[in-house]
């Protein structure tokens, strides 16, 4: 997948605090950028539906929104902590970590 930019948002959770990150892959360290691309391929991101939300409602679970921007296209997938396929969890963890680092740097 020829991703250029990622927009990520985590909302909900007990705290209800929004965590977000918006970054160009070129601005990331090489290993992180490659890892993200590999994770996107692992989940076949281009073929994912816009919403992956199961029937199970988990009070205070996290909700996620991932937008991948390529040269000609933008695709958003919304999911939750418990509905996300297992294959997607490493991607969610990495994006959360990057969002956290960005927030820390902002501080």
């Amino acid at each position: 997948m020829d991703a250029k930019r990622i927009k990520f948002e985590r909302t909900g959770g007990f705290a209800g605090i929004r965590f977000a990150a918006d970054f160009e892959l070129n601005d990331l360290p090489n290993n992180e950028a490659h890892q993200i691309l590999a994770f996107l391929d692992d989940v076949d991101f281009e073929k994912l539906p816009a919403q992956i939300t199961g029937n199970q409602q988990v009070a205070d679970g996290f909700s996620y929104s991932i937008t991948v921007v390529t040269e000609h296209h933008e695709q958003t997938v919304v999911t939750s902590e418990t509905s996300a396929p297992n294959k997607m969890k490493p991607l969610l963890e990495l994006l959360t970590q990057i969002a956290r680092e960005q927030l820390r740097n902002k501080k």
Binding site: G13, F14, A15, Q56, Q57, V58, A59, D60, G61, F62, E81, T82
Partner: peptide, 8 residues
Amino acid sequence: YDNAFWDG
């Protein structure tokens, strides 16, 4: 993990 939840 910065959360607590009720999983049903």
